[in-house]
Amino acid sequence: MAEGIEPGVELMKSEDVAALLLVDEVTLKRWRMENRGPRWIKLGDSQNSPVRYDRAEVNDFLRRRTEGEGVP
Protein backbone atom coordinates (compact mmCIF):
# COMPACT_ATOMS: atom_id res chain seq x y z
CA MET A 1 0.00 0.00 0.00
CA ALA A 2 1.26 3.49 -0.81
CA GLU A 3 2.55 5.49 2.12
CA GLY A 4 0.02 8.05 3.34
CA ILE A 5 -3.00 6.28 1.85
CA GLU A 6 -5.41 4.96 4.46
CA PRO A 7 -6.56 1.34 4.25
CA GLY A 8 -9.81 1.04 2.32
CA VAL A 9 -9.27 4.19 0.23
CA GLU A 10 -9.98 3.48 -3.42
CA LEU A 11 -8.39 5.99 -5.79
CA MET A 12 -9.96 6.45 -9.21
CA LYS A 13 -8.49 7.90 -12.40
CA SER A 14 -10.14 10.90 -14.04
CA GLU A 15 -11.26 8.79 -16.98
CA ASP A 16 -13.12 6.41 -14.64
CA VAL A 17 -14.78 9.25 -12.72
CA ALA A 18 -15.80 10.95 -15.97
CA ALA A 19 -17.39 7.70 -17.19
CA LEU A 20 -19.22 7.25 -13.90
CA LEU A 21 -20.56 10.83 -13.93
CA LEU A 22 -21.30 10.73 -17.68
CA VAL A 23 -19.14 13.81 -18.39
CA ASP A 24 -15.99 14.39 -20.43
CA GLU A 25 -12.57 14.42 -18.77
CA VAL A 26 -12.33 18.03 -19.98
CA THR A 27 -15.37 18.81 -17.83
CA LEU A 28 -13.67 17.30 -14.76
CA LYS A 29 -10.57 19.38 -15.45
CA ARG A 30 -12.68 22.54 -15.77
CA TRP A 31 -14.48 21.68 -12.52
CA ARG A 32 -11.09 21.34 -10.78
CA MET A 33 -10.01 24.74 -12.10
CA GLU A 34 -13.31 26.23 -10.88
CA ASN A 35 -13.10 24.36 -7.55
CA ARG A 36 -16.31 22.45 -8.35
CA GLY A 37 -17.13 18.78 -8.75
CA PRO A 38 -15.88 15.96 -6.55
CA ARG A 39 -12.82 16.62 -4.37
CA TRP A 40 -9.57 15.37 -5.89
CA ILE A 41 -6.03 14.46 -4.90
CA LYS A 42 -3.03 15.72 -6.86
CA LEU A 43 -0.16 13.22 -6.74
CA GLY A 44 2.73 15.65 -7.00
CA ASP A 45 3.64 19.31 -7.23
CA SER A 46 4.11 19.78 -10.97
CA GLN A 47 1.41 21.02 -13.31
CA ASN A 48 1.39 17.63 -15.02
CA SER A 49 1.16 15.52 -11.85
CA PRO A 50 -1.60 12.93 -12.04
CA VAL A 51 -4.93 13.55 -10.35
CA ARG A 52 -6.94 10.88 -8.56
CA TYR A 53 -10.34 10.82 -6.90
CA ASP A 54 -11.26 8.98 -3.72
CA ARG A 55 -14.32 6.86 -4.56
CA ALA A 56 -15.93 7.92 -1.26
CA GLU A 57 -15.59 11.59 -2.29
CA VAL A 58 -17.18 10.86 -5.67
CA ASN A 59 -20.06 9.05 -3.96
CA ASP A 60 -20.44 11.98 -1.54
CA PHE A 61 -20.53 14.40 -4.49
CA LEU A 62 -23.37 12.38 -6.02
CA ARG A 63 -25.28 12.23 -2.72
CA ARG A 64 -25.06 16.03 -2.32
CA ARG A 65 -26.65 16.43 -5.74
CA THR A 66 -29.44 13.92 -5.26
CA GLU A 67 -32.84 15.58 -5.39
CA GLY A 68 -36.38 14.49 -4.78
CA GLU A 69 -38.20 12.81 -1.95
CA GLY A 70 -37.27 9.25 -2.82
CA VAL A 71 -39.47 6.25 -2.26
CA PRO A 72 -41.13 6.06 1.18
Rank of each mutant, 00 (worst) to 15 (best):
M1A: 13
M1G: 10
M1I: 07
M1V: 10
M1E: 13
A2V: 14
A2C: 04
A2G: 02
A2D: 13
E3S: 08
G4T: 09
G4I: 06
I5Q: 06
I5A: 04
E6F: 08
E6L: 15
E6V: 09
E6K: 13
G8M: 01
G8Q: 04
V9D: 12
V9I: 15
V9N: 13
V9K: 06
V9E: 15
E10K: 10
E10A: 04
E10C: 07
L11E: 12
L11N: 11
L11F: 15
M12W: 11
K13M: 12
S14G: 13
S14N: 07
E15M: 09
E15S: 13
V17R: 01
A18M: 10
A19R: 11
L20Q: 13
L20F: 12
L20A: 05
L20S: 03
L21A: 03
L22F: 09
L22E: 11
L22W: 07
V23I: 06
E25D: 00
E25S: 00
V26M: 05
V26A: 14
T27Q: 04
T27H: 02
T27I: 03
T27L: 01
T27S: 03
T27G: 01
L28I: 07
K29S: 08
K29W: 03
R30M: 03
W31C: 02
W31Y: 07
W31L: 05
R32M: 08
R32Q: 12
R32H: 15
M33D: 04
E34G: 00
N35V: 03
N35P: 01
R36D: 00
R36T: 01
G37R: 01
G37C: 09
P38L: 03
P38S: 13
P38C: 03
R39W: 08
R39I: 09
W40I: 06
W40L: 13
I41W: 10
I41C: 08
K42A: 03
K42Q: 14
L43F: 12
L43R: 06
L43G: 10
L43Q: 14
L43Y: 07
L43W: 09
G44C: 09
G44I: 10
D45L: 09
D45S: 06
S46K: 05
S46C: 09
S46P: 00
Q47F: 01
Q47N: 05
N48C: 12
S49C: 09
S49M: 08
P50C: 06
P50Q: 12
P50L: 11
R52A: 05
R52N: 10
R52H: 11
Y53C: 01
Y53S: 00
Y53Q: 02
Y53F: 11
R55D: 01
R55K: 12
E57A: 12
E57C: 05
E57H: 08
E57F: 01
E57G: 00
V58Y: 02
V58Q: 04
V58E: 03
N59A: 15
N59S: 05
N59C: 07
N59H: 10
D60A: 13
D60R: 14
D60E: 12
D60Y: 05
D60Q: 04
F61N: 05
L62K: 15
R63F: 03
R64P: 07
R64M: 15
R65L: 14
R65F: 08
T66A: 09
T66D: 03
E67F: 15
G68I: 14
G68W: 12
E69H: 13
G70Y: 15
G70D: 02
V71S: 11
V71P: 14
V71H: 02
P72D: 15
P72A: 14
P72F: 14
P72E: 14
